[in-house]
Design a protein around this nucleic acid. Sequence first.
DNA 1: ATTAAGTGTCATGGT
DNA 2: AAACCATGACACTTA
Length: 748
Amino acid sequence: MLSLKKYLTEGLLQFTILLSLVGVRVDVDTYLTSQLPPLREIILGPSSAYTQTQFHNLRNTLDGYGIHPKSVDLDNYFTARRLLSQVRALDRFQVPTTEVNAWLVHRDPEGSVSGSQPSSGLALESSSGLQDVTGPDSGVRESETEQGFGDDLEDLGAVAPPVSGDLTKEDIDLIDILWRQDIDLGAGREVFDYSHRQKEQDVDKELRDGRGEQEDNWAGTGTDALAQDLLVDGETGESFPAQFPDVTSLPEAAPSENESPVLQNSLLSPLLTGTESPFDLEQQWQDLMSIMEMQAMEVNSSASEILYSTPPGDALSTNYSLAPSTPINQNVSLHQASLGGCGQEFSLFSPEVESLPAAAASPALLPLGPSNSTSLNSTFSPASLAGLFFPPQLNGTTNDTAGPELPDPLGGLLDEAMLDEISLMDLAIEEGFNPVQASQLEEEFDSDSGLSLDSSHSPSSLSGSEGSSSSSSASTSSASSSSSASSSASSSFSEEGAVGYSSDSETLDLEEAEGAVGYQPEYSKFCRMSYQDPSQLSCLPYLEHVGHNHTYNMAPSALDATELPPGGGFKKGGKEKQAADFLEKQMSRDEHRARAMKIPFTNDKIINLPVEEFNELLSKHQLSEAQLSLIRDIRRRGKNKMAAQNCRKRKLDTILNLERDVEDLQRDKARLLREKVEFLRSLRQMKQKVQSLYQEVFGRLRDENGRPYSPSQYALQYAGDGSVLLIPRALADQQARRQERKPKDRRK
DNA sequence: ATTAAGTGTCATGGT
DNA sequence: AAACCATGACACTTA
């Protein structure tokens, strides 16, 4: 706790100090304390504590800074939980902040500078509500998504009003603690919210069942009731999930109704409803999500600020109680001002801005609504920091171009990442990310191992043994699956002798595989093949004469039946005669021919003897041309037979290997997909943190007269070296446009 | 009787 | 060139 507080505060302090050094006056007053980490750490640092392992890597590569992970303890404590919740909440909105609404309402009356910007906050606030609403509203969404929405909605409810019937005091305390701890990490409070977790569990169940029961979740808990409060507009009585006003109403209504968060909710919601296609929904979702999270960040930051003025434990309660004139409110107002409802702020702080059309105040909303079509770029683009936090007016005019305004090193990546994520989501939905894979993924997550290539996962457990069986081929990545089984198998009778494709372990492996997979036919086949193989006859002489008869019932007594000189005297009892007849039937055609031609040696020898010995053998006997011809044919056919067997075996192995490779690749793909989503989430959260910090710092800046700077006129700009400058807005916009063009040109 | 799978053979091409 | 091997194609056998 303390460390967190310190962490954040120090970061902010340092940030502001840096700003002040740059020449901007900062209202930091009491916050001055100890060390001053690099600015980038202030900005990005908090996220490090938040991040997962991969994220560290990613971030490092992304921002180019070798930021060391901070708050290791926190990582340990929360990483696992966060990962899990993130995974489970992948499809859900995080709508952490409903509280803001209350703030705004209470705040309006306040004329003080600090409390004067309620409207801005409202816009975003309502947007969050919108988000929630949007999901359910759009019937296009799939069940999972709907669930996610439902959860989020619930979350909203749970989060907003502090008291939830189902939560015990302990629960609440725990949640608060966790939440506060995670403030710096940027996690939305819902992460720790009991009801939220409950929902998650429900969702998991539902996912497993393949069908969710959203309604149950909604009505089930006390938090649901809260959620319903949010969902149902108090003034309009409008039920968000069900229906929304026309989008068109927003522009007009928003300006006039800035003060009423509730109303804005109703107003904003329509924006979201606009999109209907799944893709748009996804985009929208992402937009809203990020915004919401950003908002959550704001709340968090405000809460963190609360730490200064109030006991840490009161942070939540303070938020809930919404004391109008508390320092918290001031903090909140700062955020809000930068976020959305700048209109009032302007009126208070910058008269010149006040003259702006009332409608302009709504622009804060614009990013939300319009962003639907413009996608994340407008909302999350690097420069969009300014856009997000600055007055709507500007956004309204420079909505599209505003993005690149700030040369945020992360910006481009983030944007792309966001887009990618969307496409990813689509991919996931379209492709293999069905319940099966999802469950599999979940499994892997639970196991805490990103890579579970265990062959047991695959429906056909063939893969494991197969992989081992073919040491030759393209089995590349599957090392994990097969490994041990093969090496020990060499004892099998599959000595293939002269044949080139001799993989000792192969036969056994196949057998094992078949046994496991039900490859019975193959099993018998290979057995036969093995026995048939002349090379094995040396080991199993009694099988020598098993021919093309599909049976192995070769009596040892039949040994060398053909080799023995015809009429070679041996007693023929009844049994023996029977056996002989049987054996004769079992003989291959070539054996019959050889017998008929009175060939003086076994086919085995004919076939498997090395050329030299074979020729020697031939030379030892006086053979007719016919006999010689037959012998050569027998040898040729015999060798070809083995070759064919090997060929087929090889073919089969190849097929099986390919099959396994496909499975492995599918697993890898799913894993990478998950990881990507994770990364994107982390990136988004990090960016939100940066944004909130930006907001906060900017909100604390004061000019010579002690007045805050107008977001519409000034913007903070990150320099490449990590410094931060306060520059005129126009200049920032210019630069943003410049930067925006570059990537486009590249594409061309 | 039909069919699919397994085998054996042949022709061909490569080593 | 001879010997071998690999493989596609075809035919036969068997279940």
